[in-house]
């Protein structure tokens, strides 16, 4: 197994009375690593600590063996694409890359050649002479990524690169990010609040919730944890009293609540897969008629709460 490129140990970071990261621990190795968490989980704080624009209050953070705070020269090896808009809208894509290249000590033919390569890589060659103010969301994301890989960094940090893009652009960006790792050798840390999007890029995932890494590792391990997560499932239909009685006796059932108008029941189960698997048998056994079934816990928030033990 390769050495970790990022080690965060007992890191806490707060902004006044607001906690960004709370006793946060993670080790990131080569390849693509996904950081998943709802808004406010601390993903962006983690990235800002990695590029050293903010410093940890407690704990230690090492990126490629060195502390990033006040270590500006290390940014030769790091490319950062933040989740917010910062592109100068009056500039063309080419001028923007010229500026970024200059900040990285690149000039002349070297810069022109590299800019051309990067524009091709992100699929922005044709639009590069247009002002960025006229770019679509997807084009802006591509230009942000172009700026972050221009100096060919070893480690690439992509904070919510898919946010606000349509499904077609999202697929293209996912393919591009995978290619940046596979074909160009960049180690990548990418964040999202949508698990399945990250899953399409990597199997190495860390889940963040309220400033803590609540789970990390292979996606299949995370999935196992998720399958044990108690789910609230609403079943609507007719003849539900008998179904409720049968469900009470099942080992996976935590509780059953019959609605006052008897039009639905809310079942809390520890293993939702088993409930879904046994439904045909239960229907046949009780003679109920099911109109719909839906989970109340589809949002990641409840999963994170569960994993965090809250």
């Amino acid at each position: 197994m390769s050495d970790p490129i990022v080690i965060a140990k007992d890191v806490s970071k707060w902004y006044g009375s607001v906690i960004g990261l709370n006793n946060f621990n993670i080790e990131v190795r080569s390849g693509i690593t996904g950081i998943v968490g709802p808004n406010g989980a601390g993903k962006s704080t983690f990235f800002k600590l990695l590029v050293g624009t903010i410093k940890v209050n407690i704990g230690s953070m090492l990126v490629m063996g060195r502390s990033p705070w006040k270590n500006q020269s290390q940014l030769k090896d790091i490319g950062f694409c933040p989740d917010y808009e910062f592109l100068p809208m009056d500039l063309t894509g080419t001028d923007f890359l010229r500026f970024v290249g200059g900040l990285h000590g690149m000039s002349g033919q070297t810069l022109a050649k590299r800019s051309s390569e990067v524009l091709k890589l992100v699929g922005m060659t044709e639009a590069s002479d247009r002002r960025m103010g006229g770019y679509s969301k997807g084009m802006k994301q591509r230009m942000k990524i172009a700026g972050s890989i221009l100096h060919d960094p070893k480690l690439l940090l992509l904070d919510e690169p898919l946010s606000g893009t349509d499904p077609v652009v999202r697929k293209e960006l996912i393919d591009m990010i995978k290619g940046l790792n596979r074909e160009h050798g960049h180690d990548i840390i990418v964040s999202s609040h949508v698990l399945f999007e990250v899953e399409r890029m990597t199997h190495d995932v860390a889940l963040l919730y309220k400033g803590r890494a609540v789970a990390s590792g292979d996606i299949s391990e995370i999935r196992d944890l998720m399958s044990d997560h108690p789910h609230h499932i609403v079943i609507q239909g007719k003849g539900l009293v008998d179904l409720a009685k049968s469900l009470v006796d099942k080992p996976y059932t935590v509780s059953v609540q019959l609605w006052s108008d008897r039009s639905a029941i809310t079942v809390e189960v520890s293993r939702p897969d088993e409930l879904f698997d046994s439904m045909p048998e239960l229907i046949a056994e009780t003679g109920c008629q099911i109109e719909s079934m839906r989970s109340l816990d589809d949002d990641l928030e409840s999963l994170f709460k569960y994993l965090a033990g809250w």
Binding site: V51, T53, Q72, S73, Q74, L75, K76, I78, F80, P82, Y84, E85, F86, P88, F99, V100, L103, H104, G105, G147
Partner: peptide, 15 residues
């Protein structure tokens, strides 16, 4: 405030 400073402070240029 508008975060356009990002490119400068995340470059290897000494602040």
């Amino acid at each position: 405030d508008d975060r356009s400073i990002t490119q400068v402070v995340t470059s290897p240029m000494d602040r």
